[in-house]
Nucleic acid binder design. Structure first.
Lengths: 250, 250
DNA sequence: CGAAAACTTGATTAGCATCAAACCAGGTGG
DNA sequence: CCACCTGGTTTGATGCTAATCAAGTTTTCG
């Protein structure tokens, strides 16, 4: 792994251990896996939760390697990708802020996909032993884990029905809609490379590029810098509606 | 639900309750969710586990309805299907013998897909309260649940990379390979309708029919009756290899 | 500044969808 | 038992969509 591990600042004077300090202060705590734990429970954590930083293109973990940790994404967007037996890579899911990835490691399994940073990413490494231990004392945590598995499954099914079927235009429109979920505070959203978009949608770079260019001309999409854009939601909604009906005719 | 619920034969003379009797005798017990429970634990089950029989086309449950049970498939094949926002139905997964479906009900969520019988199906209905109760006494059960969630997720990712991408011929070949997992004892396997195959692969009935017919002529596939076939595995493997390389050129 | 990567655009082609029609198997009722 | 109907299957002809091939342009980064 080529990730930067950022050491936690320890606070020797505190009655609490440094891990509890760090977790309490975390911006995504309330919506993350450990959100169910209260202050004293966090204080009981003795294992090391590393804070990891990744630059775009760096890997958090690799498919088929045995992992000993899951990861909570605190900032940025990760892609989960697999290579098919034909040899082409396919992005099967994205993971953003508050999402948990690599849960299969909690079961002692190898990772099912490569996890690669699309944007600068910060993530917390949650060692398996920690989760095992907590699960015993805090069964509520297991419910959180199961809910996350179900959410991932829902997401996978949505990718299959909405992003991998229908006309190329439909798929690109649906992807833009999906990307708004990973958007910044204002209307700005992260725009993947055309290659990444193609790998998500099962389209070539060229087709993706043509469609993105068309949407830009139609005003659905406004390119800010290369990796960011703004979408006009009403136009996007209208375009989706029109494209959905276009398929119906006949 | 239009399913037949088959009453369990009770055995008043036994020291065990009839539920334990039925579960102990079940042919899939060792590989099913409750396989981790021993005789005495099964005896402690007081809730009703209904045995359900479905004919092809009948539904086990419907998407977006609140369910109070998951189901273990004891015999036959179920399809999980969703309709996209464009209005076309897509089969997102299959479930066969020993598989658990409708786990989302364990989390109090609505079902994420329609579950429809493809063949005659027999399934056990596992009420949510039962699983909740057991989870408290038998944490090992939760691990089984989580493993099943992860397996479903793996399966979803495989459908995305191998069955929803690549040439139509590749997809049909991969589907045949997948169907061998649901095959009968001998080489015989269940062959879905062309419409079902199309809904799994994102292809039309016509394209699917043409490809199946071609594979039959090539000897990869031997049609027995309308719904059953036999595959020549060496030929299938060779055809997959050739088709994978065909995409590489260029 | 130069090289590499990403993006765009055009021309052509292959592959699958669409439309249309015939065929077949299984089931129903006369 | 046969005529008929229905749902599934097959095959053919045609058209459109997105892949492929091929430059050329812009952006990024050392």
């Amino acid at each position: 792994m080529i990730a930067t591990v950022i050491p936690l600042r320890s606070d020797p004077g505190s009655p609490w251990n440094p891990q509890a300090q760090a977790c309490l202060a975390c911006g995504v705590r309330s919506r993350a896996l450990f959100g169910v734990l209260d202050e004293s429970e966090l204080a009981a954590i003795h294992h090391h939760i590393a804070d990891i930083a990744l630059e775009p293109g760096q890997r958090l973990y690799d498919a088929n390697t045995r992992g000993t940790a899951a990861f909570t994404v605190r900032e940025g967007v990760l892609r989960l990708e697999r290579s098919s037996e034909r040899g082409d890579r396919r992005i099967v899911r994205l993971a953003g802020r508050t999402q948990l990835v690599g849960m299969e490691a909690m079961l002692g399994q190898t990772y099912a996909a490569d996890a690669v940073a699309c944007t600068p990413v910060r993530a917390c490494r949650l060692p398996r032993v920690l989760v095992d231990e907590l699960a015993e004392r805090q069964p509520a945590l297991l419910r959180g884990l199961m809910t996350r598995w179900q959410n991932a499954l829902d997401e996978a099914d949505e990718w299959l029905t909405e992003l991998s079927a229908g006309s190329a235009r439909w798929r690109v429109l649906r992807l833009l809609l999906k990307l708004t979920e990973y958007g910044e505070a204002d209307g700005r959203l992260w725009l993947p490379t055309r290659g990444e978009m193609g790998a998500m949608l099962g389209l070539t770079v060229e087709t993706t590029s043509r469609l993105v260019a068309a949407l830009r001309r139609e005003g659905v999409l406004e390119l800010l810098d290369t990796r960011h854009a703004r979408v006009a939601m009403p136009l996007l909604a209208a375009a989706l509606k029109a494209e959905g009906e276009a398929g119906d005719r006949g």
